[in-house]
Simulated scan of single mutants.
Amino acid sequence: MAHLEPLDRESLPQFADRFERYDRIRGFLPNSILTMSRRPAIAEAFMQLNQAILYEGTVPEALKMMVAYMSSSAAGCRYCQAHMANLSSVYGVSDEKLQAMWYFEESDLFPESEKAALRLALNAGGVPNTADESHFDELKKHFSEAEIVEIVASIALFGYLNRWNDTMATAMEDVPQKLAERAIGPAGWQVGKHAASARQPKENEDNG
């Protein structure tokens, strides 16, 4: 059950343009943002960072979404796994590839460049962090230093989100839950504490 209910988006008119972008790309507005918006400066800073990391630069968006999915899987955040499986799908990653993600080393679905990025995400996303020089040696075969910064930034961004959503038990939205059940459910994903029942608002609860 979510520890804090998301705010009503209509109470946050200053973010209307940003919220419309979420609707346009993802098909829904994340409850994580609506919860975070109790401190608008934090939500604003996060959304700016999210934009700069995931949607700007020269690393393909699909790869950054897969990197975020892998690091979230290593961290164990089911909310972020579902969200990044959904965004990976939006950017053209097949269900077959998503289901094979945990076994990317043995899969022919992933080129060596993607394997290098996913290997770093797997090792950097867990606790303790086991990323080392060998991971960067492999990355440098495929990516510029600026692109490596994008990849590491994608992992680090989800270090924040994994902690946020796993701690808050953020309620899962319908769109990512349905995608996750279809695409990564066969690989073992379950909604867990982010279940739909947690999305139901309590009567007379003060959401402000």
Results as ranks from 00 to 15, higher is better:
4 L>W: 07
204 N>Y: 08
25 I>N: 04
6 P>E: 06
65 M>Y: 00
70 M>T: 11
116 A>S: 15
7 L>V: 07
84 M>V: 01
27 G>H: 06
2 A>D: 09
187 A>W: 07
171 A>P: 11
208 G>E: 15
208 G>H: 12
33 I>L: 14
32 S>Y: 05
113 S>E: 13
20 E>L: 07
92 G>P: 15
134 S>L: 07
75 A>Q: 05
116 A>C: 14
191 V>Q: 13
145 E>Y: 00
165 N>Y: 05
160 Y>W: 15
178 K>S: 13
111 P>W: 01
77 C>K: 03
112 E>A: 15
74 A>Q: 09
2 A>Y: 01
152 V>H: 06
180 A>D: 13
104 F>T: 01
93 V>E: 03
118 L>E: 13
122 L>G: 02
194 H>M: 07
179 L>R: 15
73 S>D: 12
143 F>R: 02
35 T>L: 04
16 A>C: 02
51 Q>W: 07
9 R>F: 02
148 I>N: 12
38 R>I: 08
23 D>Q: 14
52 A>P: 00
66 M>W: 00
68 A>N: 01
127 V>I: 14
25 I>C: 05
140 K>V: 04
179 L>K: 14
20 E>F: 01
88 S>W: 03
173 E>Q: 12
25 I>Y: 05
194 H>Y: 08
32 S>T: 12
206 D>W: 10
16 A>Y: 01
208 G>V: 04
65 M>S: 14
206 D>K: 07
128 P>V: 09
201 P>M: 04
177 Q>N: 10
68 A>W: 00
95 D>M: 05
134 S>I: 03
159 G>P: 14
41 A>W: 01
200 Q>L: 06
134 S>G: 14
57 G>H: 09
132 D>V: 03
168 M>I: 11
174 D>S: 12
166 D>V: 06
133 E>Y: 04
18 R>Q: 10
130 T>F: 04
34 L>S: 04
124 A>W: 07
111 P>T: 08
181 E>D: 10
187 A>L: 10
159 G>Q: 13
153 A>L: 06
17 D>F: 01
194 H>A: 09
88 S>V: 06
198 A>W: 12
80 C>F: 09
7 L>H: 04
180 A>C: 08
45 A>C: 09
139 L>H: 01
108 D>Y: 01
17 D>T: 10
111 P>L: 01
39 R>W: 03
101 M>I: 15
161 L>V: 11
71 S>M: 09
194 H>R: 09
10 E>C: 03
177 Q>V: 06
108 D>C: 03
157 L>Y: 00
12 L>R: 11
205 E>G: 11
51 Q>L: 12
91 Y>E: 05
191 V>G: 10
176 P>I: 05
137 D>Y: 03
63 L>N: 05
144 S>H: 03
206 D>E: 11
151 I>N: 12
120 L>N: 03
110 F>D: 04
58 T>R: 15
21 R>S: 08
126 G>M: 13
41 A>V: 14
127 V>M: 10
153 A>H: 10
32 S>E: 05
103 Y>M: 02
107 S>V: 08
